[in-house]
């Protein structure tokens, strides 16, 4: 069933939805667009393409306390902390590439036993409204990864933006429940939403067929000796990457009590693999750069059958020295020659 809502009514919709639980929208603050919980007066930018930071932090927060402890010399009380069962978040306006990336995280955190209870809870409780892209920016290359910018199969509701209205196409029960709550604001669509024409992104002349298999033989490839050179060892690429999901666990302790939390971590940092005894199996930038790209291009596909990149273009935009996954694929023989 197709529904529609006038753009002028959106703030009322935000208000209603946010009463049910946190409502995450692409919100612009001081010139930077990020997914944030809606608040009155927020500048919502449904028209913006990908924000700097992907919405993965809604399911995998940058920092999450999951245990508190308290004790004296003889006893230790441990209390589990988890997002409340009523924490029903709505993620509104996520683009198809980012949603595909979330599904990649699902495979890691949910689709195996034991799953990650914190992630699972947030994910299963959330309703996702995906938003079709109509014009990609020069950094987008999602076509290469079979992402349809106009359709996100995993969404609860698929939305299309036109000049005056937002068309909403419910895909799941969760989506219908959500729209039912806002019935007074929404009407049946009188016309078909004008679907974006086929959206073409660049593919940088890359050819990914067979790349993952070929890489098995290229762990010691001389290409790595040049590729890492410009890397600064910062964590930008991993933190803006929608398919990166590593975390670290740390305690914040004080006298007789404390808490344990996990927070984002990055394989680009030297400390990521630092062991207690001082040994570091990835001591230098070369090993770390290789790890990151092989994880995307070989290890993840080996386990889950798909390259861990969705072509969102964030690393191309944000890397301070313009070292990105496209450059890596090119250096590792993923450039189309005559095959195509």
């Amino acid at each position: 069933m197709k529904k529609m809502i006038g753009l002028d009514k959106l703030p009322a919709l935000w208000e209603q939805l946010s009463a049910e639980g946190p409502l995450y929208l692409p919100i612009e603050e001081r010139g930077v667009v990020c997914f944030k919980p809606w608040y009155e007066g927020a500048v919502v930018r449904l028209d913006a393409l990908n924000g700097v930071v992907p919405p993965k932090d809604i399911f995998l927060p940058r920092e999450e306390t999951y245990m508190r402890y308290q004790g004296g010399s003889q006893t230790l009380e441990i209390e589990a902390v988890s997002p409340g069962p009523d924490d029903k978040a709505t993620l509104f306006g996520v683009h198809p590439c980012d949603l595909k990336a979330v599904e990649m995280l699902d495979r890691v955190y949910i689709d195996q036993e034991p799953g990650d209870s914190l992630y699972r809870r947030r994910r299963e409780n959330a309703t996702v409204v995906a938003l079709a892209c109509s014009s990609p920016d020069p950094f987008c290359f999602c076509n290469l990864f079979e992402v349809d910018p106009a359709d996100a199969p995993g969404a609860d509701i698929m939305a299309y933006l036109s000049e005056q209205s937002l068309y909403l196409e419910t895909r799941t029960e969760k989506g219908e429940t959500m729209l039912a709550k806002a019935e007074s604001l929404i009407s049946d669509a009188k016309d078909e939403p004008e679907r974006p024409r086929e959206v073409k992104t660049t593919d940088f002349g890359l050819y990914l067929e067979g790349l993952s298999d070929n890489l098995k033989e290229r762990f010691d490839d001389p290409a790595w000796d040049n590729l890492y050179k410009s890397c600064l060892s910062c964590g930008v690429c991993t933190y803006v990457c929608p398919t990166c999901y590593c975390f670290d666990v740390e305690d914040f302790g004080h006298e007789g009590a404390g808490e344990r939390f996990r927070c984002w971590d990055s394989c680009m940092f030297g400390h990521f693999t630092q062991m207690a005894g001082g040994h570091n199996p990835r001591p230098d930038r070369k090993e770390r750069v290789r790890q990151r790209f092989l994880h995307k291009l070989q290890y993840y596909p080996q386990t889950y059958g798909e390259i861990a990149c969705v072509g969102c273009g964030r690393c191309l935009r944000s890397c301070p020295v313009n070292l990105d996954i496209v450059q890596a694929v090119k250096a590792l023989g993923g450039e189309a020659v005559e095959q195509r």
Binding site: E29, R30, V32, C34, V53, R62, L232, S233, C234, G235, V236, T238, Y239, V240, W264, S266, F269, P320, V321
Partner: peptide
């Protein structure tokens, strides 16, 4: 301003 910080340490590394 600082609430946006991702702690990527790019500022330090450059």
């Amino acid at each position: 301003e600082l609430s946006r910080c991702l702690r990527c340490y790019a500022c330090r590394q450059v």
